[in-house]
Simulated assay, not measured.
Amino acid sequence: MKLKKGDIVTRPSYNCDLLFRVLDVRDTYVELVGEEMRLLADAPIEDIILVSEEDRVLREKQAKELEEHSYKLFRQDAKLLKQRGEYEVTAGYKNEADFFELRGRVLHIDGDGLYLKKCTDLYEKLGVPVYGVHLHEREMPEQIGSLLEMVQPDIVVVTGHDALLKSRGDDHDVRTYRNTKYFAECVRIARKHSWNRDDLIIFAGACQSHFESLIKAGANFASSPDRINIHALDPVYIASRVSLTSFMDRVSLSDVLRSTITGEKGLGGIETKGVMRRGMPMKFNS
């Protein structure tokens, strides 16, 4: 079997449960990234099989159904938020609904270029302003300060790939994780830029990341409480919920996690205010 970069493969030793994209091929092993999950892994070449076109199409269909379900839940919640806003701004619908919305701007820093494209497409579909940047995880702490100064976001997402290296032992040691230390350092730098957790909302983490370290560093939301894999689009749903929630309201943790693909085992956070502001009268498109 001749493997090459970009091939879609799976691992028999894990019952072929996930699809991976080949990142690099070495002499005896391959470097892999999850096709839908934000997971980075190494695997012996003998533990790799190419995915047939038929199997790939079936799995992609199943993944699409999960994504569409989360999108539907999100749109339902967004519609309720908008109706509630209209009711408040119009004094119980007594006045004409003549208002605009300034939605929170997102700086999304991603370690995977393909995931970044999927994420920015979803932000645009949800009507959330976003500035996306692709950086390797180890480069993120060096660049995040200047990016924050340039973009001036309301919300920052720092994500990419991660993994718990079980061979190293203690899962409470941040050094046991591939990239958690870079995500945590980004959070600390961002908090120097804005220490108030309601002035700058931060999501940090990827698959199996050390949730506690990221929250303690200053993140509002992070992965992964149960050290499980998270979906590539999960950070988008959390950031977008904050973007579309009024600064007068708190983001419902149960609602925001319900609309993600992974749920509360892979994602968590703290009480956080929204960042969207309404204004009147309507003189331009929101």
Results as ranks from 00 to 15, higher is better:
Gln143Val: 10
Val133Leu: 11
Asp121Arg: 14
Ser70Met: 10
Pro281Lys: 09
Lys181Pro: 00
Ser13Thr: 13
Lys273Asp: 03
Gln152Leu: 05
Thr262Leu: 04
Lys79Cys: 03
Gly274Ile: 05
Asn285Trp: 06
Ala41Tyr: 01
Phe211Ser: 04
Arg26Pro: 01
Lys64Asn: 10
Leu58Met: 08
Ile202Gln: 05
Thr28Tyr: 13
Leu80Trp: 07
Ile48Cys: 12
Tyr131Val: 11
Ile215Lys: 08
Ser223Ala: 11
Asn179Gly: 01
Val251Met: 02
Lys192Glu: 14
His134Glu: 13
Glu264Tyr: 05
Leu244Pro: 02
Ala190Phe: 03
Thr176Trp: 01
Val256Asn: 05
Asp27Met: 06
Val130Gly: 04
Ser254Asp: 14
Ile45His: 04
Met276Pro: 10
Leu81His: 03
Asp173Arg: 13
Asp112Val: 15
Leu147His: 10
Arg38Thr: 15
Glu101Gln: 08
Val25Asp: 13
Leu19Tyr: 06
Leu19Gly: 06
Arg26Thr: 07
Ile201Phe: 03
Thr262Asp: 05
Ala217Glu: 10
Lys283Ala: 05
Gly34Leu: 05
Gln143Lys: 14
Ala63Asp: 15
Thr159Ile: 03
Leu80Asn: 08
Tyr123His: 15
Leu253Tyr: 01
Tyr93Thr: 11
Ser259Gln: 11
Met282Leu: 15
Leu39Gly: 05
Glu46Lys: 13
Phe211His: 13
Thr120Cys: 00
Thr272Lys: 14
Val256Met: 14
Ile155Gly: 06
Thr180Trp: 02
Ile202Thr: 04
Gly104Asp: 11
Lys72Glu: 15
Ile215Cys: 03
Gly145Val: 12
Ser13Glu: 11
Pro44Ser: 15
Thr180His: 09
His134Asn: 14
Lys216Pro: 02
Thr90Cys: 08
Glu65Ala: 14
Val236Ala: 01
His161Leu: 13
Leu122Phe: 04
Val275Tyr: 08
Tyr115Asp: 12
Asp255Arg: 12
Asp162Ile: 12
Asp47Cys: 13
Tyr182Gln: 10
Gly104Trp: 01
Arg197Val: 03
Ser146Arg: 09
Ser213Phe: 02
